[in-house]
């Protein structure tokens, strides 16, 4: 497990706070965008094997809509905003005001793809800029890329950097819910933040936590 051995519960708590702040801002943006109340769950920080990571997002064959972006700058990493197909449908219906729209059958609607990509862009942008303010690190998002495909195929792409060092990933996972969770129009999304192995030290240092605490 090499680089993961250095982490204590203090470190995981710091990462939880990182997820909390980032996703908190993203939830606010989402709420403004949809004009709806959005709830955020307490972030989970877990050390998981690659297979377990797929299970967190519903299993490797589960089909999702995902916006992926690379974080560049002081603390590089990968970020995913993952939505189930139904959730993506709900979002897009609200965004483009077309109740008949659906992501079930390709080829997908161009406007809808663009709207979804923009949604991911706004949310991850606000996540990242709050993170950048909080840590005083320079973090730049790459242009986000959208893919509607199997979880395994999508997430494994974000694990490539990490996989050169470890067989485990530290995942900062935050789920968003909208207020009326019982209705079928409920909106749920997951943020996965996967810092590159070398970035942990940078993040901890920026927040004043010694690596070997």
């Amino acid at each position: 497990m090499s680089f993961l051995d250095k982490f204590s519960t203090v470190h995981l708590d710091v990462l939880k706070e990182v997820g909390n702040i980032g996703a908190g801002h993203a939830a606010t943006s989402l709420s403004t965008l949809l004009n709806k109340k959005i709830d955020m769950r307490v972030p989970k920080v877990s050390v998981v094997s690659f297979d377990e990571m797929m299970d967190m997002a519903g299993g490797p064959e589960n089909i999702v809509a995902s916006v992926f972006l690379r974080i560049e700058g002081d603390a590089p990493g990968s970020m995913f905003f993952v939505l189930s197909i139904e959730q993506a449908n709900t979002f897009i219906k609200q965004m483009i005001n077309d109740v008949h729209f659906s992501f079930e059958n390709p080829p997908y609607h161009e406007l809808a793809m663009s709207a979804l990509q923009e949604l991911g862009n706004i949310l991850s942008g606000s996540y990242l800029s709050s993170l950048s303010d909080f840590t005083n690190l320079d973090l730049y998002p790459s242009v986000p890329a959208l893919s509607i495909d199997m979880v395994g195929a999508i997430i494994s792409f974000g694990l490539i950097e990490l996989s050169q060092v470890s067989d485990y990933a530290i995942v900062i996972d935050t789920a968003l819910d909208d207020d009326d969770t019982h209705s079928s129009e409920s909106v749920k999304g997951h943020f996965f933040l996967l810092p590159d192995p070398d970035s942990f030290e940078t993040i901890f240092k920026a927040l004043g936590v010694a690596e070997d605490e």
Binding site: M54, G59, E61, D149, M150, V151, G152, A153, S156
Partner: peptide
Amino acid sequence: NLIRTSGLGSC
């Protein structure tokens, strides 16, 4: 028996 792997992307 059969053998399967799921969710191949860049792998």
